[in-house]
Write a protein that binds this DNA or RNA. Sequence first.
DNA 1: CAAAAATACGTAATATAACAACATAATATT
DNA 2: AATATTATGTTGTTATATTACGTATTTTTG
Lengths: 281, 281
Amino acid sequence: MNLLEQIYDRLESLNKSERKVANVIIGDPATATRLSIASLAQAASVSEPTVNRFCRNFEAKGYPDFKIQLAQSLAGGTPYVSRSVEQDDSTEEYTDKIFTSTIAALDIARKGVNAGLISKAVDYLIQAKQISFLGLGASGPVATDAQHKFFRFNLPVAAYEDVLMMRMVAAAAHTGDVFVVISYTGRTRELVDVAKIARENGATVIGISAENSPLAKECTVLLAAPTPEDTDIYMPMTSRIVQLTLLDVLATGVTLRRGVDFHQHLKKIKESLKATRYPSE
Amino acid sequence: MNLLEQIYDRLESLNKSERKVANVIIGDPATATRLSIASLAQAASVSEPTVNRFCRNFEAKGYPDFKIQLAQSLAGGTPYVSRSVEQDDSTEEYTDKIFTSTIAALDIARKGVNAGLISKAVDYLIQAKQISFLGLGASGPVATDAQHKFFRFNLPVAAYEDVLMMRMVAAAAHTGDVFVVISYTGRTRELVDVAKIARENGATVIGISAENSPLAKECTVLLAAPTPEDTDIYMPMTSRIVQLTLLDVLATGVTLRRGVDFHQHLKKIKESLKATRYPSE
DNA sequence: CAAAAATACGTAATATAACAACATAATATT
DNA sequence: AATATTATGTTGTTATATTACGTATTTTTG
C-alpha cells in the first residue's frame, strides 16, 4: 500500500491536529510535495513539529523523506481513494469526498477495462443496422445520453427508458440490430428478459453492467463496469459515471473507425446548433 | 518525458562534473532521492553548487524540487492530463485517453469548486417548495438524472428536456420554487429566456454552467463547471460528467442537511426496488 | 467530581541543508 | 600567448527541519 492510501486508511485513528495535516495533504497531494514544512504547517494551522511528528507516524525519517515517499506514491497509482461521506462533514469535505470517490471509481475502471472487449463492441456498433440503448431507473438517463452522443455520428440510434417499449423493440429485433443494455446491478428482471428476447431474435446485445450477473449471461459482449465496494448508503452514483465514460469510449471508437470524413459531419451538426445560441463575444 | 529519461537523453550534452552527477543518479536513482545535496555532491566528487546547478538545468527549482520530480519519475506513473484522441490511436490508447481526460476534468473541477456556493445552493434546495431541473440537448439526460436522484430524497422534483414545457413551468413559477438550469455553454437562448422568466416570477435559479455566460447573469447562484480547453473535436463529453458530479454533491448536501431520519426513507426506497430484481446469490 | 497521569500540541533553540555571491581554475578563442 | 569564456569550488548566508522542553488538554482513576 502506498503512502497516500495509508494516510486515508489511518485517517480515523489520527488525533485532531494530525488529521488537519492529513486533510491538507489529501486535498492536494501534488502541491503538498512542493511545500516546506513551515508552509504545510501553516496551511493546516498547526505547528511545524506537529507536521514532523505526523511524518514519523508514517514510517518516514522526517519531513523531506516523507515528501519523497509522497511523491512516489503519487506517481505510483491511485491518488484518489473512495471515502464515505459522514453526517457531520463540512461542505468542503463532502464535496471533496464525492469528487474524489468518483475519480477513484473512474481510475479503477480505467485500469480494469478490457480493450479487446471494447474493440469487439465497436465492431458490432459500426456494422449495426439499428442501435438501441436500454436503461431503467438511474440508467435511463445514461441510455438517453448515449443516444444523443451516437446520434451525432449519423448512426440509427434510439433510447428507451420504458419497459413496454423495450419489449416491443426487442420482439421486433432483427439480425444486425444492436442493443446496448445498461444496468448497474444486472439483476433487473425486465431488462434481463428484454435482453434474452433480443438475442433470440438474432440481435447483438452489448451489456454495460456487473460481471456474473443474470444480465451478463444474456450478452454477446459484456463491458463490466467494475464496482468498488458500496461505500455509501446513498446510491450507486459513481457507477453511473463509469457507465457514461464507457459509452464515451465506445462512441469515440466508432468515430475513429469511421475515419476522417466524419469530422465533416460533426462540424455540420455543431454549425446547426450555433443558431440557437448567443454568440460568444 | 519524465525526469529520469530526460537525464539519459541529455547525458551527452553535459559537461564533466555534471555528467558525474548524472551518472551517480542514473546508477541508483532510488537512493539518490534519499541523499542530501552534500552527500550526493560527495558521491559524485563534485561541489554542492555543481549539484544545484545540475538540478536547475532540468527545470527544477532547486535540489529538493529535483528530488521530488525524480521520485515521481521513478514510479513511472502517468499523471492525469487531458490528451486528445488521435486518428490512429489503438483501442488501448483512446480508451485510456478518454478515461484520463475525464479524470483530469473532474480533478480540475474538484480544485475549483466554491464550497460557499455549494452551501448556498443547498440552502435554496432544502427550502424549495418545488425543484425543476432544466437541460436541453446533451444536458437533458443530466437533468433527468438529477430528478431521479433528488426524488429519492422525497423532494418535490421534476425534470424538463422540452423547451415548451420549460416555458410553461417557468411562467407558472412562484417564490420558493427552485430551478436548476444545466447548460454547458450557458449560451442557449431558450434556456436563458426561461431562466429570466423564472427569476421574474420570484423563483430561485441555480445555474450549472459556464462563468460569464448570458445564462450566468440570470442565476441566483452559479455553479461554474470549469471547462478545460476543448481538446477534442468531438464533444463536451467531460463537462457533462462534471455537471453530474456537481449534482451528486448537491444531492448529498441536501441529504446531510436533512439529517439521519432520511436514511430510513432511502432504505425504504431501496427495499421497494428489490422486488424487481433477481436476488444476488 | 477532583486529582493525577497521560497524551497532545506549541514555543524556542539548535542543527542541518540548500543556496547565492564571489573567487579561482580550466578551457576555448583570437 | 593573451584574453575571453565557461566551468567549478569556497565561503558565508538564509532557509528549512529537528530537538528539547514546557504548557495545555484530555483521559484515567480514586
